[in-house]
């Protein structure tokens, strides 16, 4: 199980770095987040790592993540390699997890590289260690959830553009749902708040690491990976 997953992950990672797409997407993500960061710095004079991590990155990821997940399954469906992959003696979970892991590595690299902005302007001088760790954990989990959504979107189509747009719409829905709580009565509002990704992200970003937020992210990731597996299996529905 583990070794097949790693084989798939290795192949995906290599193919990310063999094509210019990964570089372009990473550079774009860095440029945009950097731009937002320095804009903040020059305008208000108070660019902080917190501002970057909690304000800009979730929005940048809304585009960045679909861009790196869109090809993962859709391309194999289009080119027909899916027929090779699913007729090899491997499970659909191994395929999905392998692809997910590869994207997760790419995401982690990108997150680590965003470090450079605050470092360059010496903003890490007096960081609240706990809060920064919480923000990074939050950002990582947020990105990881987006990736699962993006992978699912890639699984339901053979068209990468459709996968990209579907992922953006789904992610935006989960990001924004928390903003509409004011329009709903009490119990429904708290349900919506819980469903939204941002609420949990902001909790973690405050440096409060609560299991209910971790459970939320784990649940979302599992749900969408499960749906991605189901999308591969959809060929088996009679």
């Amino acid at each position: 199980m583990f070794s097949n997953t790693m084989t798939f992950a290795g192949r995906e990672l290599k193919s990310y770095f063999n094509s210019p797409i990964a570089y372009i997407v990473i550079v774009l993500a860095l440029v945009i987040s950097g731009w937002l960061f320095f804009l903040n710095f020059f305008i208000s004079g108070q660019a902080t790592i917190r501002g970057l991590l909690t304000g800009s990155m979730p929005l940048v990821f809304m585009i960045f993540v679909p861009a790196i997940t869109m090809r993962l399954i859709a391309e194999e469906k289009k080119s027909g390699t899916i027929e090779l992959v699913v007729t090899l003696p491997v499970t659909d979970w191994e395929i999905v997890l392998g692809k997910y892991l590869a994207a997760l590595v790419l995401l982690t690299i990108t997150i680590i590289m965003t470090f450079t902005y605050p470092i360059t302007i010496g903003m890490l001088g007096d960081p609240d260690g706990g809060a920064v760790a919480g923000q990074y954990l939050g950002l990582f989990l947020l990105g990881a959830t987006y990736l699962a959504i993006g992978l699912f979107a890639s699984g339901i189509t053979a068209n990468q553009i459709v996968a990209f747009l579907t992922a953006i719409v789904l992610i935006a829905a989960f990001y924004l749902v928390g903003n509409f709580v004011v329009f709903f009565p009490g119990p429904l509002a708290s349900v919506l708040e819980y469903i939204g990704v941002n609420y949990h992200f902001q909790n973690l970003a405050r440096g409060v690491i609560d299991t209910k937020d971790l459970v939320y992210y784990a649940g979302m990731i599992f749900l969408f990976l499960f749906l991605a597996v189901r999308s591969l299996e959809s060929r088996k529905w009679k």
């Binding site: 097949n4 084989t7 094509s19 080119s79 007729t87």
Partner: peptide, 30 residues
């Protein structure tokens, strides 16, 4: 699936891999 070797009509290959990488990939999954 373990017992079968299959060449589908569409010849599924990854264009960005070289021949050696591709065959090693299949070996690993086999």
């Amino acid at each position: 699936r373990r017992k079968i070797g299959y060449l589908p009509e569409t010849t599924p290959l990854y264009p960005e891999m070289n021949v050696r990488e591709y065959l090693r990939f299949v070996q690993a999954l086999r």
